[in-house]
C-alpha cells in the first residue's frame, strides 16, 4: 500500500490464452498527477485501461483506487460511479443523439432507470452543459447529431462527456490519433486544463504530443514497466531506445 496515492496497480498480471498481456505490472499515480503511458503495440496499454475500468479482471494482483477500494472486485458501472472516466481510442459517442443529449446523459447524477424515466432537465444541468460546450468549443454544434460531427469534434465531445461525468481520474486512450496539428495542440491545452482539477492518464503513440504535455512518462513493454521518468529521461534510456524509439 502506497500512502496517499490515487491509483495503485500492484503486481497485475493478465493472460489471454497463455499470452501475458500484463506481466506483474505495478504503477503508482499521485492525486492531481497527469501521466503519459507510451509503448509499442501489444505492450499492454489498452489492457491496463481495461483492468482499471473493470472490463478485464486480472489473474493476479490488485488495483487500489483512493485509500482502499479494490477495483478488481467491481464492474464497469460501479467503477464509473467511483469517479473513473474512460475515453476510448476510437471516438465513442452516442451517434443518433444530439451533442447536447450526449452531454446530458454523461452528467454526473442518478443512473437508475427509475430516475431517468421521470427526469426533467434542470437549470443547473443546463448551466453545466453550457460550460462544457464552451470548454470543448462545441457551443455552435449543440443541436447537431453526434454522428454528423467531424472526427476531431467527436474526440472533443467524448472528452466533454468525461468532464460531465466529473471523474476524479480520467483515462484517455490515444486522444490525438487522426487529428490535425492544430487540433493536437488544442487537445494538449484542453488536457492540461482538465488536469488542474483532476488526475489524468494519457496513453499515446504521438511522441511530439507527449513531449508537449511535459509530464512524467511511463514506458510499457511486454506488459510491464520498462522505464519511468521525464520524457528526456526515458528517451535516453538505452532499453527504451532499443524496444521502442529506435525502431
Amino acid at each position: 500500500m502506497i500512502e496517499g496515492s490515487l491509483l495503485y496497480l500492484d503486481g497485475v498480471t493478465v493472460s489471454f490464452d497463455g499470452f501475458r498481456a500484463l506481466n506483474d505490472l505495478s504503477l503508482v499515480l499521485e492525486p492531481g498527477e497527469m501521466r503519459a503511458v507510451i509503448g509499442p503495440n501489444g505492450a499492454g496499454k489498452t489492457t491496463m485501461m481495461d483492468v482499471i475500468t473493470g472490463k478485464t479482471r486480472p489473474d493476479t494482483g490488485r488495483v487500489v483506487f483512493g485509500s482502499d477500494t479494490d477495483l478488481t472486485k467491481l464492474d464497469e458501472p460501479a467503477i464509473a460511479e467511483l469517479g473513473i472516466g474512460r475515453k476510448f481510442q476510437k471516438p465513442t459517442v452516442f451517434e443518433p443523439l444530439s451533442v447536447w443529449d450526449n452531454l446530458l446523459l454523461a452528467l454526473a447524477g442518478d443512473r437508475s432507470p427509475r430516475f431517468s424515466l421521470w427526469a426533467r432537465e434542470t437549470a443547473e444541468e443546463r448551466d453545466r452543459i453550457e460550460a462544457i460546450l464552451a470548454t470543448t468549443k462545441l457551443t455552435e454544434h449543440r443541436t447537431r447529431r453526434a454522428a454528423d460531427l467531424s472526427h476531431g469534434q467527436k474526440q472533443w465531445l467524448e472528452i466533454g462527456m468525461l468532464l460531465a461525468q466529473e471523474p476524479r481520474l480520467l483515462l484517455v486512450d490515444e486522444p490525438v490519433a487522426g487529428m490535425t496539428d492544430a487540433e493536437t495542440a488544442q487537445t494538449a491545452d484542453l488536457l492540461r486544463e482538465i488536469n488542474k482539477t483532476r488526475s489524468v492518464v494519457v496513453v499515446e503513440h504521438d511522441m511530439a504530443f507527449v513531449r508537449a504535455l511535459g509530464v512524467k512518462v511511463t514506458v510499457l513493454h511486454e506488459g510491464s514497466v520498462l522505464s519511468e521518468g521525464s520524457i528526456d529521461h526515458v528517451s535516453e534510456d538505452p532499453r527504451v531506445i532499443e524496444v521502442y524509439l529506435g525502431r
Binding site: T53, K55, D75, E76, P77, A80, E81, G85, R86, F88, T92, V93, F94, E95, P96, L97, D101, L104, L105, A106, R111, S112, P113, S116, L117, W118, A119, M161, Q165
Partner: peptide, 30 residues
C-alpha cells in the same frame, strides 16, 4: 424521455454506457 435516450445509447454503444456508470441490463429489463 431521458430513459429513452439512454436506451438508444445502450442499443448502439452498450459498452460506452457502462463506462458512464449506466447498467444496460436494468434499462433493457424495464
Amino acid at each position: 424521455s431521458r430513459y429513452g435516450k439512454v436506451l438508444i445509447a445502450v442499443r448502439d454503444t452498450e459498452s460506452r454506457t457502462r463506462f458512464l456508470g449506466y447498467r444496460p441490463e436494468h434499462y433493457k429489463l424495464v
